[in-house]
């Protein structure tokens, strides 16, 4: 399963999970089946409007089923629920710690 983590500074699996979702700088996307990961820029970070929706569109494209961030806005929560993506509120901890 693919799990995404919203982060602001790219330090691979040591990146700290961001307090924000839609405007986080990057997503660290971990494939728990193959134990591999990649880091992608969040198009929502520079969006004028609908940042969270642009972030979710990226997650859908990447086949992500679960996402971690410090907080999710009302638009983000509704859309994530509709798209069947699980979301978890957590921030300030490294990605690898959240994974274990």
């Amino acid at each position: 399963m693919k799990v995404a983590f919203a982060v602001d500074e790219n330090r691979g699996l040591d990146s700290l999970i961001s307090h924000r979702f839609g405007r986080a700088e990057y997503f660290v996307i971990v494939d728990t089946d193959t134990n591999s990961y990649k880091v992608v820029r969040n198009p929502g970070a520079e969006a004028r409007s609908g940042a969270a929706i642009k972030a979710i569109q990226l997650l859908i494209k990447e086949g992500v089923r679960k996402v971690y961030a410090g907080s999710f806005g009302p638009n983000a929560m509704t859309a994530l629920e509709e798209m069947g993506i699980e979301y978890v509120q957590l921030s300030g901890v490294p990605v690898k710690e959240a994974l274990s």
């Binding site: 929502g44 969006a47 004028r48 409007s49 609908g50 929706i53 979710i56 859908i60 638009n75 069947g84």
Partner: peptide
């Protein structure tokens, strides 16, 4: 084409509208 992010494509590419945006 949506400039405000009000249109989201689901995993099976069906558009989903977010009215507030």
């Amino acid at each position: 084409v949506c400039d405000t992010g009000a249109m989201l494509l689901s995993p099976d590419k069906v558009p989903y509208v977010i009215p507030r945006l």
